[in-house]
Measured scan of single mutants.
Amino acid sequence: TTYYDVLGVKPNATQEELKKAYRKLALKYHPDKNPNEGEKFKQISQAYEVLSDAKKRELYDKGGE
């Protein structure tokens, strides 16, 4: 599973699309609303952290993490 899959976006997604997808999923899986989905929330946050940063995203796209 790639970070793009976690957020449900395509690899060519814009920053705005990433932000929108992250917010939607973060609300859905937030531990306050969904106590059993803490791990999913962490995955979503990690994916967004990497993909929202241009340098980290470039490194990730080249095969790094």
Rank of each mutant, 00 (worst) to 15 (best):
Y22T: 01
K62M: 09
G8Y: 03
Q46M: 13
Y4W: 04
N34R: 07
N36Y: 11
F41I: 05
P11R: 10
Q43T: 09
E37F: 15
A54K: 12
Q43A: 13
K28P: 03
E65A: 14
P35M: 06
Y48Q: 01
K28Y: 09
Y3T: 01
V50F: 10
G38D: 10
L25P: 00
Y4I: 01
K42T: 10
I44S: 01
A21H: 03
Y22N: 00
A26T: 09
D5M: 07
Y22E: 01
K40F: 10
D32L: 13
A21Q: 05
T1D: 08
N36E: 13
K33G: 08
E16L: 09
H30E: 04
P11G: 05
A47Y: 04
L59A: 14
G38F: 14
R23D: 15
K24T: 10
Q15D: 10
Y60L: 04
L7M: 05
R57T: 02
P35F: 07
K28A: 09
K20Q: 14
K55H: 11
V9E: 01
K19A: 15
K42S: 07
Q46F: 09
L27T: 12
I44P: 00
A26C: 14
V50H: 05
E49D: 11
E17Q: 09
L7C: 01
T2V: 06
A47M: 04
T2L: 09
D5T: 07
L18P: 00
E65I: 14
Y22F: 13
I44G: 01
K42I: 11
A13T: 05
N12A: 06
A13D: 02
R23T: 12
P35W: 06
K56D: 06
N34I: 05
D61F: 02
R57W: 02
S52Q: 07
K40V: 09
A54E: 12
Y22V: 02
E49I: 08
L25A: 05
E17K: 04
S52G: 11
E65L: 13
K24E: 15
K40E: 05
P31D: 07
L7I: 04
K28M: 14
E65W: 12
Y22D: 00
T2G: 06
V50N: 04
K24I: 13
K33S: 12
K55N: 11
K19N: 14
P35Y: 05
G8T: 03
A54C: 10
Y3N: 02
K28Q: 15
Y48K: 01
G38K: 13
G8P: 00
A54I: 14
D53G: 03
R57N: 03
A54N: 09
Y22C: 03
G64D: 13
K10N: 10
N36M: 10
V50T: 10
A26R: 11
V9Q: 02
Y48E: 01
